[in-house]
């Protein structure tokens, strides 16, 4: 009787359905992400590569792979990645902020907002490899861009974009900028529109100029989203691969100045040097894990953070009132 009761009670409880519904996610995660990650970390401590047709290892070598990593061009590639990311991100965030401010400014009354939004977001959906291939074709030595510049008399000889460091890096940065500024603009716009409109009205009554309003009200209010954009963009920058890979045919030319970390990883994976690939991955993983933590705390503020945030939110209002 009592046994029957216990099993009966369970029947009306729905908890098991929660487990059933989230199970596929965690199983897929376990198989396709967790186990691979564990293996990646594991093999980073082994000598394990292929030389010709023979497979060397896996032999445990401790931290040798990491030492080799530091002695290789790893730092140079890390520097490349940062430069390429910054060169795209700085114009991206400036233009996006500007556009977000303009689009949400009631006094400007920009027409065709929807059209502009649709246009500027479009490059984000383009296949990065196809986009890179397109740029490669357009900016090649005898491609249409050079042809146009020469025929217009701006240049005497075609400019060899892909042989100059600045040219190649500039092209990568420009592609990254074009692909991401629309996305960022829309995110920031949504954030600005989430601000209580009464705040802007109060600021206007207090005599704020548009510029003052932007710097003293809008910017502080959308800070959480800005942080989110910054961090996700950093992670995106770390993942940078398709564009430089296709543009330079995987060579990172000229002189490996546009070789990114993931291209480096890709080279090791292709040459089947699993030990080194593991070490690169682990370093990348550690950086990403830190960034993930930052995103997590940005999205899920703890109690004390929330209080600080609230205070931050009050600050601009006070400033607005004090004029």
């Amino acid at each position: 009787m009592s046994k029957k009761k216990i099993s009966a009670e369970r029947e009306v409880s729905y908890a098991k359905w929660g487990y059933i519904f989230i199970a596929p996610f965690f199983i897929a995660f376990l198989i396709f992400q967790f186990v691979p990650l564990a293996q990646t970390i594991y093999y980073s401590f082994f000598e394990y590569y292929r030389s010709g047709l023979t497979v060397i290892g896996p032999n445990p070598v401790g931290l040798d792979n990491y030492k080799a990593l530091l002695e290789s061009d790893f730092l140079k590639y890390a520097g490349n990645t940062v430069i390429l990311w910054l060169a795209g991100f700085i114009p991206q965030i400036i233009i996006s902020l500007l556009l977000a401010a303009w689009f949400t400014d009631v006094r400007l009354r920009i027409k065709g907002k929807q059209f502009f939004k649709v246009v500027i977001y479009m490059p984000n959906l383009i296949m990065a490899s196809a986009f890179a291939m397109l740029f490669f074709a357009l900016f090649s030595n005898n491609g249409p861009v050079n042809a146009t510049l020469v025929s217009l008399g701006i240049l005497e000889h075609p400019f060899r974009f892909l042989s100059s460091v600045a040219g190649t890096r500039g092209l990568v940065a420009m592609m990254n900028f074009l692909m991401w500024f629309g996305n960022t603009t829309i995110l920031l716009m949504a954030a600005v529109m989430g601000i209580n409109p009464a705040l802007f009205e109060a600021a206007e009554l207090d005599g704020c100029s548009p510029r003052q309003t932007f710097f003293r009200i809008t910017l502080p209010m959308i800070r959480p989203i800005l942080v989110y954009v910054l961090i996700t963009s950093m992670i995106g920058g770390l993942q940078m691969f398709d564009v430089p890979q296709i543009l330079t045919n995987g060579k990172g030319s000229p002189d490996r100045t546009v070789t990114t970390l993931i291209m480096f990883l890709n080279n090791h994976l292709y040459s089947k040097n699993y030990g080194m690939a593991g070490a690169v991955s682990v370093v990348l993983f550690i950086i990403c894990a830190i960034l993930c933590l930052l995103v997590y705390f940005n999205l899920n503020p703890t109690e004390s953070d929330r209080k600080i945030k609230k205070r931050d939110k009050l600050k601009p209002r006070k400033e607005a009132l004090n004029g």
Binding site: F25, F29, I31, F32, Q33, V35, P36, L37, A38, Q39, T40, Y43, I231, T232, I235, L238, Q239, F241, I262, L265, L269, Y274, A277, G278, S281, V282, L284, F285, C288, A289, L291, C292, L293, V295, Y296, L299, N300
Partner: peptide, 20 residues
Amino acid sequence: FIMLILVMPTQVSAMGFINV
């Protein structure tokens, strides 16, 4: 847990992924 891995790129485990 899911929130923590929200923006974790898959590239970092690519090596193990190919193995698995």
